[in-house]
């Protein structure tokens, strides 16, 4: 009988209150064991305070071929960045 444990993606939130970050993946039979395995595999050096796991198969991802349509249009929206606006120095810090 061959029943490979499913693959899980692991997300860890570090000490400093930042977002959970993808750190890698591992195999586990269940979510409960995936969290335990993640604790043992990915926080050996005191890396985290919170763990998320999600089945790799359950992740929906954007297609590389969509890269242009998805991301290039935002290049043109320069007005979303603060440097777009010229404010005289006399106004002070803004």
């Amino acid at each position: 009988m061959s029943s490979e444990w499913p693959l899980w993606e692991v997300f860890i939130r570090g000490q400093h209150g930042l977002n959970h970050r993808h750190v890698g993946s591992l195999h586990a039979p269940s979510a409960e064991m995936a969290i335990q395995n993640a604790r043992d595999v990915y926080t050996r050096r005191n890396e985290g305070v919170s763990i998320w796991v999600v089945r790799s198969n359950d992740i929906a991802a954007s297609a590389p071929s969509d890269k242009g349509p998805l991301f290039e249009p935002s290049n043109a929206k320069v007005y979303r960045h603060p440097t777009f606006f010229d404010i005289p120095d006399d106004v002070g810090h803004m």
């Binding site: 444990w5 591992l26 195999h27 586990a28 335990q36 395995n37 043992d40 595999v41 050996r44």
Partner: peptide, 11 residues
């Protein structure tokens, strides 16, 4: 039996 278990046992 698995790498994950190997690492956990060592801990």
């Amino acid at each position: 039996p698995t790498l994950e278990e190997d690492i956990a046992l060592a801990n």
